[in-house]
Simulated scan of single mutants.
Amino acid sequence: MKPVIALAVLAALGAVGGTIWIGSLVREDTVVAQPYEEGLEYDRERRGREALGWSVEVAPAVAGPGALAFALRDGAGRPLDGAEVALTVGRPDSGRGQWTAAARPREGGGYAADRAFPAPGPWEIRFDVRRGTDRVRLTRTVDVPAAAPACDLAAGPCTVELGGAAVTLELSPRPPRALAELRVLADVRAGGAPLDGAELSVRFGMKGMEMFPAEARLAPAGPGRYRGQAVLVRCPSGRTDWTATVSLARPGAPGATAELGFKAAE
């Protein structure tokens, strides 16, 4: 009888020990390692925000390559230029996917970091802003949508945003063919109204290939309308994947470019 009791006791102790060991493996890290210090830091940040009245507006963005753009305002709502801004971006629930970057200044209190959101969903952005002796930390949480599928110029017109204008580009015939005249049409609008007086060109090429330059310089063809033509060469390797680099310049605005893709027919 005694051996049976001893075995039962040992089994019970083993179960308890196993539970403790498993618990040690699955334990979660402390969410806030130093809650008192964290609380003091939070109060300092809150008082700094209230004293300066600075605010941040994050431009809409989608997941994928690109830049994170935002604008800073002072307490009176005026653009806040001349600031140094360091960004820390991560998931609000876990901090996963965290990255940091320094922002570069743009006009009108605007700034941009040459990084973007790698995936859709909620992201928390921390802005550490310094101008002179003034410092403040601002935090925003944004919900980033998935990027829309890339537009295919061989299937129909595509619209891109360039320097505050919407450019709708169309190629004809569809699909484009090598060694045949390619007609290039563009409709350019700013604020919904036709935009005249712009300089617009489309350069065709293949990524990673030194190609004979094919470029269409578009001429005015009506209110907000532009037209040009080009000829695509035939790639000796048999590749048919092309890129169309659209360039727009207009008075009072910096030049801007965007890239679209398509496949040509033989």
Rank of each mutant, 00 (worst) to 15 (best):
A116I: 06
D187I: 08
P145I: 01
L153T: 10
R137N: 12
M211S: 15
R174F: 13
R115D: 00
P213K: 02
F212A: 15
E170G: 04
R130A: 15
D114G: 01
A165S: 10
P213R: 09
R115L: 00
V136C: 03
F127Q: 03
R106V: 04
G222M: 08
E170F: 04
V167R: 03
R225C: 00
G121W: 02
A113N: 07
L153G: 08
E215Q: 15
P173A: 00
G191I: 13
D187T: 12
V136Q: 06
P122L: 11
L185M: 09
P157I: 00
D187G: 11
E215R: 15
V167D: 05
S172L: 11
R174T: 14
M209Q: 08
D128G: 05
C151T: 08
L171T: 03
D114L: 06
S172H: 11
A116Y: 03
A113Y: 11
A178W: 12
C158P: 03
R203L: 07
R183W: 06
G191K: 08
C151Q: 13
A155R: 15
P194K: 05
G205S: 15
L185T: 10
I125S: 04
D114F: 09
C151N: 01
L169M: 05
R104C: 07
V202F: 09
L185D: 09
L162M: 03
A214L: 09
P194G: 03
A154S: 13
R189F: 11
G121V: 05
I125Q: 09
R183E: 13
G222Y: 13
P149W: 13
A103T: 10
C151S: 06
A147K: 08
E210I: 06
D187N: 02
A186E: 08
V142S: 11
D114H: 13
A221R: 07
A103N: 10
G108A: 15
P122K: 14
R203K: 07
G222L: 10
E124P: 14
Y226L: 07
F117L: 07
R131W: 05
L138F: 12
A119F: 06
P145C: 02
R174K: 13
P120N: 09
D128Y: 01
G191E: 05
G164W: 11
A214I: 05
G164L: 12
A214C: 02
G109Y: 06
W123S: 03
L218H: 13
A112V: 12
R189I: 03
K207W: 07
V184I: 10
A165R: 04
A150C: 04
C151A: 09
A155M: 10
R104F: 10
A101Q: 02
D134A: 00
Y111R: 09
D152V: 02
R104V: 09
A102H: 11
A147S: 08
T141C: 08
A113F: 12
P120F: 07
G164M: 11
A103S: 14
A146Q: 08
P223L: 01
L179A: 10
L185K: 03
A219G: 08
V160A: 07
P176I: 01
A154E: 12
R217K: 14
V160G: 04
A178S: 14
R140N: 06
L138Q: 11
M206T: 14
R217D: 14
A219M: 13
T141Q: 14
G132M: 06
Y111W: 12
A221C: 13
V144Q: 02
S201P: 09
V136F: 06
D196G: 09
A112M: 14
G164Y: 12
G163E: 11
A102K: 08
G224P: 00
